[in-house]
Design a protein around this nucleic acid. Structure first.
Ligand SMILES: [Mn+2]
Ligand SMILES: [Mn+2]
Ligand SMILES: [Mn+2]
Ligand SMILES: [Mn+2]
Lengths: 220, 220
DNA sequence: ATTTTTTTTTAGGTGCGACTAAATTATATT
DNA sequence: AATATAATTTAGTCGCACCTAAAAAAAAAT
C-alpha cells in the first residue's frame, strides 16, 4: 500500500510516458514534461528512488522499476476511465476533459475505480484513442502510426491523437478529423512536410505539426 | 474567482457546519471538527480573514462573511452531488461514500459540477438525507428533528442522519433503521435516555447516542 | 586534447500547512 | 477581588514541493 502524493503520482506518470526501452530518462525531459525546473526534478527523483519506484544514479538518467510502472499504470487507468466517464456520461467534449481528469486521477479509492469501470462497461479506449489499462494493468495492443508515417495513396482510419491540448483537439474538430473518420492520403509535400488528403470526397491540406499528432490505422 | 486550497475549503466547510446565528465560532471547536490543533486553526483563520471569507478578531470567535458562506456551499454542493453519484450510479453503500466525497468535493471545474448535476437529474437530497444546494446555493428547507426530541406515542419517518461515520451507518443498517422507514416511538427511559420504538411490529431499543443522530419527520 | 556547451546536481531559500511549547487573554470558581 | 482553569494566540520548527544561482559533470565541437 504505497501512499503517494499528487506530485509523486504526476512524476511517475511523466516518467512512464517518457520511457523508451534501453534509454534512461533525463532530468530536463521530465522538467519540460511537468513544466517545472530541473533542480526540482532531481530532488523528487531521489525521493522516488528511496521508495524503489525507479533506479537513480547521478547523471545517468532514470529508469522506472516494475513497481514504478505498476503504480504509473494505476494513475493512467484512472485518468482514462474518468475521461471516458466525462465524455460518455456527462457529455463533455473531448477537448474539455483532460484538465479535469488530471485532477480526478488522484482520487484514492480502489473500490471507486472498480465500480466506475463496471459502470462504464469496462471500456477499452479513452476519448482520445488511448488504451485503458485493466485492473491488472494490461491494455490492448495498439497497431497504429502517425499520419506523417504513412505512404501516399493509402487509406487510413483515425484512431487517436498524440497531443491532448484543447487547442489541438478543437482544431481537429474544425477540420472534421475526429476518431473513426477514414481518408486517403494523396500526397506529401517535400519542402514543408504538409500532407494532402481526401476525406468525404473533399481534398484538404494539413500541416506537418497536425500530421505528426494524428494516429491512424492503415486500411487495405 | 477565488482559488482556494483544499485546506482552505475544508476549513470553510467546517466553519459553515459549526455556525449558529449570533455566536462566534471558537478555535477549539474548529480544531476538534477538523482533527487538527488550535494553533493551526488560528493561523488559517487569519489567512481566511485576509481573503474576506470571515471576520476575525482575536479571542472573539469567528463568523463567516457572505462570500465565505457562498464558497462553503459550493463545496458542500459538490460533496453531496458526488455522494449521490456514488450511491445511485456506482452502487456504493451509504457508509462507503463520505471519505471519497471528501476528496471529490475539491475537484475544480464548474462545467463538471453542472453536468454532473444534470446527469443525476438535479437531486434534492444526498444519501444521508442532507439537502443538496442548487447552482445558486439554495436548498430545500428541512422540517425534521432528532429522535431524541420527539414525544412518546408519535409516529415518525426516518429522514436522515447527523453522524456520517461508517461505523454509525453500518450500525443503523444492522438495526434496519434506514432512510424512509417509519416507526412509532413508544417510550423514553429517563435514567439513560434510551428509546423504545416499534418498527414493522417489532419492538426495539436504541441508545441515547443513536437517537440523537437519527433525523425524522413527524407523521400525524 | 582542449575548449565550449549542455545537462545535472548542489546549496540555499520560500510559502504552505501542519506541529509543540510557552505566553497571553478570557472565563469560571472561590 | 483574587485565583484557578480554559481558550486562544504567539514563537519557533518541520516536511513537502517548489524556486534561483552557482558548481560540477558529461557531451559536443573545435
Ligand atoms: Mn495529475
Ligand atoms: Mn486521454
Ligand atoms: Mn474535503
Ligand atoms: Mn452526506
Amino acid at each position: 500500500m504505497s501512499n503517494l502524493s499528487i506530485s509523486e503520482e504526476n512524476y511517475l506518470k511523466a516518467i512512464f510516458h517518457l520511457y523508451k526501452p534501453g534509454e534512461g530518462i533525463g532530468t530536463n525531459a521530465i522538467a519540460r514534461h511537468l513544466d517545472t525546473k530541473p533542480a526540482s526534478v532531481t530532488e523528487m527523483l531521489k525521493k522516488l528512488a528511496d521508495k524503489k519506484l525507479l533506479t537513480y544514479e547521478k547523471y545517468q538518467g532514470v529508469i522506472p522499476t516494475r513497481k514504478g510502472f505498476t503504480l504509473a499504470l494505476v494513475v493512467i487507468r484512472k485518468h482514462r476511465l474518468w475521461e471516458y466517464f466525462l465524455v460518455e456520461k456527462l457529455k463533455l467534449k473531448w477537448d474539455e476533459v483532460h484538465e479535469i481528469a488530471e485532477q480526478l486521477e488522484h482520487i484514492q479509492s480502489d473500490l471507486l475505480v472498480e465500480q466506475l469501470d463496471a459502470f462504464l462497461g469496462f471500456p477499452k479506449l479513452d476519448p482520445h484513442g488511448d488504451p485503458i489499462p485493466d485492473k491488472e494493468g494490461k491494455m490492448c495492443a495498439m497497431n497504429c502510426c502517425c499520419v506523417s508515417e504513412i505512404k501516399p495513396n493509402s487509406n487510413a482510419r483515425i484512431f487517436g491523437v498524440k497531443n491532448h491540448t484543447s487547442a489541438f483537439l478543437k482544431h481537429l474538430e474544425k477540420l472534421n478529423l475526429t476518431i473513426g473518420k477514414t481518408f486517403t492520403l494523396v500526397n506529401r509535400n517535400d519542402f514543408d512536410q504538409s500532407v494532402e488528403l481526401v476525406l468525404n470526397k473533399q481534398t484538404m491540406h494539413i500541416s506537418k505539426e497536425v500530421a505528426e499528432n494524428i494516429l491512424v490505422e492503415k486500411l487495405k
